[in-house]
Simulated scan of single mutants.
Amino acid sequence: MPSIDVPQITLNDGRTIPQLGLGVYKVADDEAEQVVETALGEGYRHLDTAEFYANERGVGRALQASGVPRDEVFLTTKVWNTAQGYDETLRSFDESLTKLGTDHVDLYLIHWPAPKQDKYVETYRALETIRAEGRALSIGVSNFQVPHLERLMAETDVVPAVNQVEAHPWLQQHELRAFDAAHGIVTEAWSPLARGRILDNAALVRIGAKHGVTPAQVTIRWHLQQGLVVIPKSVTPSRIRANLDVFGFELDAGDLAAIAGIETGERTGSHPDHNG
């Protein structure tokens, strides 16, 4: 089994998270088992799933079948909008653990702030309880904007360890990343390849040709050099392998300047103020 030296980022609770992992959004449960087994075999040690993905069972089966010790894999899941609220979140978390076949997760997130529901503060208090019980070793949020974070930190006790948001060269999230960094929150990027739509961008193609790598590898490398945690999704074994093979080159100042220049603000997913 390959040994890949993926950098670790230290969270504000003293634990560490591998900077590169595998996302499994829109991977069917039966397919997720094979995809995750492939990734673990290639050397991935960070898996990101969610209640909403409906593939926690497949991820759990793969984790158990892989032979990789549980304490070597950083496992994240998330509570969905319809399960927000203190008691509802506790029940949802129990269900997620059962599906995953584990007694703990490494990171538990609120999937969206769902501001119209106005439940994310009480939901986060449930996460604080779960963390205190040792069943989620770290807790955080996903898709939270600055006002959501400000309110959360004013009304709860534990600063989120992670804020997982859509980020890629079209949507570089400078303001949000700066706020996270100022408060000790690690920013994690979902849809880091803009669901594949960005990969024919001329600048990324040119930079890839310069380094002898693909535009996807350039984009993942950009995230790493920005200090982001990044969780590209693929179901194709060759791409799963290639997405991890990004530590043999480095983007130079000219590359980074070119990528900075392609930002458009375009999203591939919902705006957090409108979801839920």
Rank of each mutant, 00 (worst) to 15 (best):
L224I: 15
D94S: 13
T214I: 03
E42H: 13
F74Y: 05
W222K: 05
A194T: 13
S66W: 05
V158P: 07
L97D: 06
D255Q: 07
L152G: 11
I262E: 04
Q8V: 01
L47N: 11
I185G: 06
G85I: 05
Y44M: 13
Q217C: 06
H223R: 04
I110M: 07
P272H: 06
Q64T: 06
L22G: 08
L100I: 02
A209T: 09
V158N: 04
D5F: 00
E95S: 13
P232G: 11
D5I: 00
S138D: 05
N143W: 13
R57V: 11
T102E: 11
V73W: 07
D255A: 13
N81A: 07
E155W: 06
S234V: 04
K210F: 01
T129N: 09
Q64G: 07
E133T: 09
A203D: 15
E42N: 11
Q64Y: 02
D157F: 06
A260D: 14
R239H: 14
V24G: 02
E33W: 11
E95W: 10
L63A: 01
N55P: 11
P232K: 08
H274M: 11
H148Q: 08
G14V: 13
G67Y: 14
F74K: 04
G208A: 10
A39C: 15
P115V: 08
S96N: 10
E72M: 10
Q173I: 14
A194K: 14
E95G: 15
D71C: 04
E33Q: 15
E133H: 08
G58M: 09
E166V: 11
W112Y: 08
E250A: 10
Q84T: 11
D103Y: 03
L11V: 08
E33V: 07
A32F: 05
D180M: 14
L137D: 12
G196L: 13
Q217A: 06
I130E: 08
I240E: 12
D273L: 02
R177Y: 10
Q164E: 15
I259K: 04
A136Q: 07
T236H: 08
Q8G: 00
R125S: 14
E42Y: 14
E95H: 08
E166C: 12
A181Q: 14
A54V: 04
F74M: 01
R91V: 14
P2G: 00
Y108E: 00
A194P: 12
P272M: 05
S238E: 10
I17R: 03
G184Y: 09
R125K: 15
Q173D: 14
A209E: 15
T98V: 10
N12E: 13
H223I: 12
T82W: 02
R15P: 05
G85E: 08
D255G: 09
I4V: 06
V105A: 10
T77C: 08
L63F: 03
Q217R: 06
H104K: 14
I130Y: 11
D106S: 10
E266D: 13
G67V: 12
